[in-house]
Every structure is written in structure tokens, then in C-alpha cells.
Design a protein around this nucleic acid. Sequence first.
RNA 1: GCCGGGAUACCCUAGCCUGGUAGGGGGCUGGCUUGCUAAGCCCGUGUCUCGCAAGGGACUCGUGGGUUCAAAUCCCACUCCCGGCGCCA
Length: 428
Amino acid sequence: MLDIKIVRDNPGAVRTNLARRNDPGVLRMFDELLGHDQEWRRYFAEAGELRSRRNKVTEEIARLKRQGLDASERMREAAEIPQRIKEVEDKMNLQRERMDYILMRLPNLMDESVPYGKDDTENVVVRTWGEPRKFGFKVKDHIDLAEALDLADMERAAKVSGARFYYLKGDLVRLNFAVVAYGLDFMAQRGFLPFLPPYMMRRRIVEGAVALTDFEDMIYKIEGEDLFLLATAEHALLGLHADEILDGKSLPLRYCGVSPCFRKEAGAHGRDTKGIFRVHQFEKVEQFVFCKPEDSPKEHELLIRNAEELFRSLKLPYRIVNVCSGDLGTVAAKKYDLEAWLPGQGKYREEVSCSNCTSYQAVRSNVRCRDRTSDPTRYVHTLNSTLVATERTLVAIMENYQQEDGSIAIPEVLVPYMSGLREIKRAK
RNA sequence: GCCGGGAUACCCUAGCCUGGUAGGGGGCUGGCUUGCUAAGCCCGUGUCUCGCAAGGGACUCGUGGGUUCAAAUCCCACUCCCGGCGCCA
């Protein structure tokens, strides 16, 4: 959510930035917002004057009564004010509701370095690491590998739970948790405090983190309760400090969360319908940072570097893209994706998404900071990045580490987390 | 799930019964004073809004309603915390 004060101070600059979204609806909403804000302030001032008068008369009544004098004339005068206050407040609240409606739907301001583009085909590659491996045999995709080695059961998952669910089996289950455990150690070594968050959250907390359009498309609701299934640990980590004023000296707060992630992904039909690349649940180790506004660009670079180091340690070739304006989404001011090379598809595919959300989530969730209690408060900046998301990373490992005999080698760094197992073969 | 107690500013706490300017302590901040392992005193300390500014005004006692000229205080609903009982991998 945009900070209304920033909007008031620089309406022209904010409008120019929003115009880069190339969405006429956004500009229309923005212009409406300015109108509602002016009206709101007018009614706000009027209500303030009325309350001021009422307070003065009320004080006078209290004074007269203390002195044992007759206050009935004053009380008659005061009696008519509450009705008028209510009328003005109703008008004021109507304007406020319309403002909030718009503010909850306007996207974040984009960073200047975001490239202009219509969709994900126009993201800009900023660097590439590693060479796609040359295979001396016919390469399989992860679906064929899983089937040949009996590492997953998609058909029975469809029977039990529907499309886009899966059973992992055998050593692939162990590899899944090896990746999580490795990721967790990796983060702890870098001073990120690990959290295992609640897997369900109230609406207020989710709304503090995501755009409302994403809400319906992505989040599972618990029937009959004000609870929603976690789509990423990011949301729960942000919610940790909702409505708090953080001590500036404690910033940056560098956290990591490990959790399952549940996603509806409505509208994604037709893409990646097979296999475990795009699914309704997976596990993820997530990086999350609360920092001072001036520090967010360098924290953003830190988070993407962490993800890169992890993928390098797994020896998975990847590239980093700077996500363009048309693919950026509502919440992030700037986003890097890490795309790993998938030999089975012959493409780089998204494994990691690393966002600088600036103050967008902090305003929605009301997270502020200050160095001294006598200083004014400021909204913090928040950043989040995948470190590693298991099912997608399993796909990358399976396809990149496949061997001519059909088995899959275990990346060196994961061997200790697999009790020394070095390759996954077909069980006898 | 049941019974009882509670939620006051950055932190702690008084006020609630009996409605009438939210008081005290700590912390932080700025200032003043005194010759010294520091102490004392004073201003400030949340949100919104009007104003170039100086400075006004409103709001804020867990949340939302209600009663009243006036609500931290009375009434209703809800949330969370603490204690006891019950249930429980």
C-alpha cells in the first residue's frame, strides 16, 4: 500500500511512476484517490471544529456543576451537536472507505532500474553462472526420471487429492528434507535467525502482505474460520512485527523461515500440468529482512547473492534476471528471479524470486522504526527471497544430475544430509 | 470447552466501584546546574490534520458498537493474555 503522505506530497511524481505500469485503470483509481482525499480532509476539518465546540461547552458544563450552578442552558446547547458530528463523520468515513479501497489495490512504486517490458519474455538477464552440462546420452525430464526410479506417484495423488498434487517416494523424500536441512544450516551460518511459522494466519495478516487480486487466486481459506493456509513463510514473517515500532538499532532484522507453502495458483492451467514443477504444495526456506529505508537496495543484493551461492554450491547452472515492469507484480518495487537450467526442458526456469517490497508491505502491516523514542517514526522496508524451494529444486537436481544408467547423483554438499548416500538408483 | 482475573503511551503502573483536563515511575532525547566511579532539576516523548512558520485543532486507555451534554470509567459484542478445571498427540 502506498503511504498516503507520500501521495499528498508528490502526487505528480507518484502518478508518473504509476503510469509506467501501462494500466489505465491504475491511473483512473489514482486520480479518484486524490479527489476522495481532498473531500476527506475537508470533512475531517469540519468534524474537528464541531468536536472542538462540543468539548468547550462540555467543559463549561463541568465547571458550572462543580460550582453548584445551573447548567441546563448549556446542556440544551450541547445536546444538538452530536447529531451534526455524526452526519459529518458519516460523510468523512465514506470518503475514507473509498480511499482505503483504492489504496489496497494500487501497486507499489517501481524502482528506476526496473526495465520496461510487457511480460516475462522481456525480463533482462543481468548475469549467468555455470555451463549447461553436455550429456553423452538421451536426456530425460524429471517426470521420466521419477517414473523410471519410482520416486513419485502422480496418478494416485490425483485420486486422493486432485491435479497438481503428488506423492514423493523413497529417496526423493529424503532428498527433499536434505535440501531443507541444508538450506536452513546455510542461512544460520549467515546470521539469519530461523523460524518455523504458523501454517495458518488471519485475514488481516495476509492482507498486510499480498495484493488483493493475488489473495483470491493464490490463498486457501479454512472453512468457517478467519484462517488462511500459508502460501509462503514470507507472510508469517512479515506478520511477526505487524503494528510494531522497531528499534532502529536492531535493524536490519535478517530472518529465515522454513515451511510448507500451499497455493491455489488459479489460472495457471495449461502450463506445467505434469510433474512436480508447479504444484499446490511444496516446502521452502525463505529469507526475510526488515530494514531501514536507505538500506533496502543493498539488502536486496545480499539476498540474491545468498540464493546464488546456494545454487553454486549445488553446482546448478543459473541466470539472474531483472524482472521487467509487465511481470513485476503489485507488491515489489524491484525483483530478481534466479532461473536454473533444466536439461529436460532445455530452458532456464524460475527457482527463486527475490523482491524488494520497499514500504509497500510495511504500510499495509503497519511496521515502523525509529532510532530513539523521541524521533518520528518511519515505515521500514521489507524484502523477501526464496533461498530454496524444494520441489522445483528437486526437479533441477534430478535433471542436472542424471546419469547414463538412469540413476541420479546426489550433489556433493547434500551427501552428509543423505547419511552418505551418493546416488539414487531404482529400488530392487 | 467451562469458570475466574486481566489488556492504560516505547516499557511498568495508578485511575474504573462513585462518568467531568489520563497521574506517577522507568527509558530515550534536548537543556540547565553542581568538580567527578556521577547526581539533581526542567522541556519533550503516539496518530491525524490545518499552517511558509510560530503555533492551532482533533483523536488515542485491546477492537467495534451503545447510553450520555460528557466514557479509561456504565452497557453489549468480539480478540488476545494469565490462572484453575476439562480434553488431548
